[in-house]
């Protein structure tokens, strides 16, 4: 059974193991967030809610909100906006990207898969383009709270593996809670229904089994429909 804590709860005396969602005061570790304790290695409090905060190395899906030479301003579903420099595209571009033609490569409302390269003290966020993901390749985007992302992935990827197999879809889960699905229309419908279900029931136990059951019963019903 997992343990729910609230801000100010005493967690441990091992200050060296204090991780995310905790703070140290007078040689003791306390929770700074409302969430679930995880004691594998670091003592962490996994938050149940709250906004996504970018940190170095995160791979996220961003949406271009403005163009301001030489940057694209990118929304990451976080309170802070991020910037993508034109040089990030210089490898792909045929010609020099200039003030006038930025929108030919990426326009407002386009979605990009980016990696957070640097977050400074003033929360200026620099991004780099993930080149292994081509842009504008179609598919669907769904959004869940970023706190539910680990649940959709499952322990060592068990949940996501099952989803990919049973839904026949390409599924990419970004750290900020945006999920990119690509596949046949009906497969995408199923995948998004299931992912939203997982996000809704994320705090219950035995979820992987229940999702498997749900997927199987769905398949059976489909087959019956085809036969009947």
């Amino acid at each position: 059974m997992y343990q729910v804590v609230v801000p100010g709860d005493f967690l441990s005396e091992e200050t060296k193991r204090a991780g995310e969602g905790t703070y140290v005061e007078e040689g003791k570790v306390y929770a700074s967030q409302y969430g679930i304790v995880s004691e594998r290695g670091e003592i962490k409090v996994v938050s149940l809610s709250g906004k996504y905060m970018p940190s170095n190395g995160d791979v996220v899906i961003g949406k271009i909100t403005a163009i301001s030479f030489p940057f694209w301003i990118v929304n990451l579903a976080s309170p802070y906006e991020a910037r993508l420099h034109v040089s990030a595209l210089s490898g792909i571009a045929r010609e020099k990207i200039e003030f006038g033609n930025m929108s030919e490569y990426l326009d407002v409302d386009d979605l990009v898969v980016v990696k957070v390269m640097d977050v400074n003290v003033l929360m200026k966020i620099e991004l780099a383009l993930q080149e292994d993901f081509e842009l504008r390749r179609g598919g669907r985007l769904i959004e869940i709270p970023h706190t539910k992302v680990p649940r959709v992935i499952g322990r060592s990827g068990s949940m996501i593996k099952m989803l990919k197999e049973k839904c026949n879809c390409f599924i990419f889960i970004a750290k900020n809670g945006r999920i990119w699905i690509r596949g046949k229309e009906e497969d995408m419908d199923l995948a998004s229904t299931v992912i939203l279900k997982i996000a809704r029931e994320s705090h219950t136990s035995g979820l992987t089994d229940r999702v498997a059951e749900f997927l199987d019963s769905f398949r059976k019903e489909k087959e019956r429909e085809l036969r009947g």
């Binding site: 801000p7 100010g8 967030q33 409302y34 809610s49 706190t147």
Partner: peptide, 11 residues
């Protein structure tokens, strides 16, 4: 505030 996931030292 706790429900919103705001980091706090205590309630």
């Amino acid at each position: 505030l706790a429900d919103a996931g705001i980091p706090m030292k205590d309630l």
